[in-house]
Amino acid sequence: MYKSISLSSTVLLCFALSACGTNPSRSGGSIPVDVPPVTQPVSIDGVVDDTDVDPNSVAGRAPKERVIFFDFNKSELRPEYLDIITQHGRYLAQNPTGRARLEGHTDERGTREYNIALGEARAKTIARMLQLQGVSSAQLRSVSYGEELPVDEAHNEDAWSKNRRVNIIYEVEIQN
């Protein structure tokens, strides 16, 4: 469907367009903003925290198995992890100064924001189970990164199964 207009209206259009012309400010003006660098090491899978922690601290003596894996699109705990969660629950309940951060993650499939929500649901599953064993909510902090921080960046089931996880990260500072 072609549209043609008469020359007289074309002239009017020319005036209208040349009046606004090409706005010079449109192509410029974006100034990069640098975020201050993160001073603490970035921990994406909890491994860094494990090795850096003083073994005599609360964090250092916590149970070593700190990654819980999930099924695709699920936030329910797989039965085989019940024992590990029980160990963490008992440990945190007995050490009320201990603080743990629960980082929820998903695989790359599905949308990013939905995965943020799914990762949070996974972290909250772990938080609820710990609290059932007497851990105080003040000892726990949940954060979800969705699919943003994969352990394995390959696009296959093996990688995906490693990425669907909650990392239990014992925070180094002990508040008392």
Partner: peptide, 24 residues
């Protein structure tokens, strides 16, 4: 120009800077 109708469809001119030539 429209070739089959043998006529000018539109045309105009405007002033731009180095930075906005691509925008033009």
């Amino acid at each position: 120009f429209d070739i089959s109708q043998q006529k000018l469809l539109t045309g105009f001119n405007f002033k731009v800077s180095d930075q906005t030539l691509r925008n033009a």
